[in-house]
């Protein structure tokens, strides 16, 4: 069930971002993930590839799907998985991130999966720890496994990325998912569009080789894939957009807006969704267009592939 070769796949022992990966790396990772899709659908989902290895999930931000996805990926490969949910309150006991890292390092983990509210946190840990570090989201910087699982999902439906029009819609400003996807999809030859009100677009977004749209219909026109982003609740109350009803009216994905996309266009969302804010329920639940559930399944397979790939470099 595991991949036939044990030769190293990635040049780095860490996965900190899409930046640093080549199109070849991505293709190999996605190919490897395909084998884990098969494994995940089998009756016996477990192998012993990572037997004896320790994986620590260190989450400074709450997460349901990413954390459980890594946990399941580790367990299906036979690793020992430990979850450390560090609520902001307990960090305020005074320990710095570096001190936390040293403590963990002393426990001799093999792989550390980290999510942190600050950009660059995974990078910092990778320099302080002996083990492999996987970035599960750092601030508004990168969330590489999300972008890779999105790519896996897209490739399974469209075959390749070349010339695909992908519209990434919503809170691009605060989104690490958008940044990682934009890097990955552009690198693989897709044409990426960012769609958001100006308050939710990062400065100089047009300098990333993407089209920037503030009108959702023009942004969705002819799109193959519509990727919705979550709008954080605290950003809806007037600071960045005036209200949820206005946001849904102009930037929420409904049938009318989706109708201008390419016939057969597919809808994605990294979750968790705000129904009636960024996406209408009937679209989220429409299995003909929504890939949202499939993204979760691909998440486990893709993360197994990442754990596999990183473990190959370990002695």
């Amino acid at each position: 069930m595991t991949s036939p070769s044990t030769a190293p796949i990635l040049r780095s022992k860490h996965l900190l971002g899409i930046e640093g990966l080549t199109p070849f790396d991505v293709t190999v990772l996605l190919d490897l993930a395909e084998t884990y899709v098969v494994q995940g659908r089998a009756t016996d989902k477990k192998t012993a590839l990572l037997k004896g290895r320790t994986l620590i999930n260190l989450f400074f931000e709450s997460s349901t799907r990413t954390q459980s996805s890594f946990e399941l990926a580790g367990k299906r490969l036979g690793a020992d998985v430990m979850n450390m949910s560090v609520k902001t309150s307990s960090v305020s006991k005074g320990e710095t991130l570096i001190d936390t890292a040293s403590t963990l390092n002393a426990m001799r983990p093999d792989i550390l999966v980290v999510r942190h509210q600050d950009a660059g946190a995974a990078e910092l840990l990778s320099r302080k720890l002996d083990c492999s570090v996987i970035n599960a989201g750092d601030g508004a910087h990168e969330h590489p496994t999300q972008a890779l699982l999105d790519a896996l999902t897209i490739r399974r439906h469209r075959g390749s990325f070349e010339g695909l029009v992908v519209a990434i819609c919503g809170d691009v400003l605060h989104s690490r998912v958008a940044r990682s996807n934009l890097r990955l999809l552009s690198m693989m030859g897709a044409q990426v569009r960012l769609v958001a009100p100006r308050t939710l677009l990062p400065c100089d977004a047009d300098r990333f080789g993407v089209e920037v749209h503030t009108n959702m219909k023009s942004g969705l026109a002819g799109a193959d894939i519509v990727m919705m982003l979550r709008l954080q609740l605290e950003r809806m109350a007037g600071a960045f957009v005036p209200s949820t009803r206005e946001y849904f009216r102009f930037y929420g994905l409904d049938r009318e807006k989706l109708s201008v996309a390419k016939p057969g266009a597919l809808v994605m969302h990294p979750g968790p969704m705000n129904r009636g804010v960024e996406i209408a329920s009937d679209i989220a639940d429409d299995v003909q267009v929504s890939l949202i559930a499939e993204q979760v399944e691909m998440g486990v397979a893709l993360r197994m592939a990442i754990l596999d790939a990183l473990s190959r470099g370990m002695s």
């Binding site: 007037g238 005036p242 009803r245 206005e246 009216r249």
Partner: peptide, 9 residues
Amino acid sequence: GETMTEIGL
């Protein structure tokens, strides 16, 4: 002068 109005609507 605290929160923007629903300019679109």
